[in-house]
Simulated scan of single mutants.
Amino acid sequence: MSNSPTPTPAFTSTVTEAVLPGIVDPEGIQVRTRTARPAGPGQVVLAMEAAGVSFAEQQMRRGKYYDQPPFPFVPGYDLVGRVVDVGQDVPRELLGRRFAALTKTGAWASHVTVDAGDLTEVPGSVDSAEAETFVVNGITAWQMLHRLAKVRPGQVVLVHGANGGVGSTLVQLARVAGARVVGTASAKHHDAVRALGALPVDYRAPDPEDRLRAHAPRGYDAVFDHVGGEGIVTSWRLLAAKGTLVSYGTASTRDVQGSSRAPVLKLLARLTLWNALPNGKGAHFYNIWAGRRRPGAFRARLHADLSQVFALLADGALVPQVAARVPLTEVGEAVRLAESGTVVGKVVLVP
């Protein structure tokens, strides 16, 4: 797929988008059309070629994402698309070129308006859906691995949910960094986890902590935990003397009724307490939006990190994990599949 300027796709008069009207089943997500709006100053309109279905949207559907907007709204954390319109002060040379963007919401649409400063160009040799699997997942994994845990060659790391979107990316990037990787996953995903380069451990088997400790008797140099809940205590215990725990979610409470903020606040309090202990270990909660109050530095960091990931993808050092490509008009099916626990990698919406 070429990424050089191409004949610019026609700017459409209507936009198709998936709207989350409230706390609904996947089939309750509504597909609507509206009148298209041109790009404003400093903005571009992307014709979506791929948009991801991530864990954040699964939480939003339940009203459980920490700072989601009020219903109704269009979900969609990230996308890859081609520029079809540019606003004032944006170079027309961007027209027809393909970019990735992190949006947090709004990407589940045929056309998405974003700030031009939020764009990262996609290598011409990379398929749009394959690139999409490494946008929010790639930024998240890269920053946790290199900016927080600072994983080095020869270290041993533990990745929970190694078959998932972020987990499978973490495994691959950790292997590229020269680390030995152990990954938790259900038994049906073990072959896929091995293929990524990690040693799989069944988290549902008896005594999972003992099984994990057997593969790193001195402890893990880094543990990446998206589960949260009481399981985070096990992750902390499995650390080596100067190991680093990186928590980046509360998946264990996804289906628990009650406040969306309480599990996060409890987790943050626990991590803060652990960091105060004089034992040499470190604990972090990763938030991809941290630092956005300094937009220039925030954008530069995101762009640099995603560019590193895309370069590895273009070189063949990373293997995309596209679980399925589902049309935007069948968004309910895509969400149900993503939530089923039966897939490896990421479900991707396509036009």
Rank of each mutant, 00 (worst) to 15 (best):
V31M: 02
S54F: 06
G197V: 00
L212R: 12
A107N: 09
V83H: 06
W236R: 11
A185R: 00
L79A: 14
M1K: 04
K266L: 12
W236C: 07
L170E: 07
G76T: 09
V31T: 11
V90E: 10
V80P: 04
L79M: 10
P69Y: 05
V156Y: 05
F11V: 13
T169V: 13
P200V: 00
M144W: 02
W289M: 11
D78K: 08
Y77V: 15
D118R: 07
S4W: 06
G28R: 02
T35S: 13
L94N: 04
G22Q: 05
T234K: 07
I288M: 14
A192K: 10
W289A: 15
F11W: 07
G52I: 01
F134N: 07
V233R: 13
A185T: 00
G165S: 15
H303E: 06
L328E: 00
S340R: 04
L94P: 02
R82I: 14
A129D: 06
D207I: 09
A198G: 07
V348H: 05
D210C: 06
A185P: 00
T140K: 13
P123T: 11
R98Q: 03
Q143Y: 03
V53Y: 08
D210Q: 13
R254K: 14
S110A: 13
R62C: 09
L239F: 12
A222M: 05
T244D: 06
G229Y: 09
W236L: 08
V201R: 04
R92A: 15
L337M: 14
S235V: 02
R147Q: 11
L313S: 15
L158K: 10
A262F: 05
G40M: 00
R152Q: 14
A222L: 08
Q68G: 14
L145H: 10
W108F: 09
Q143H: 12
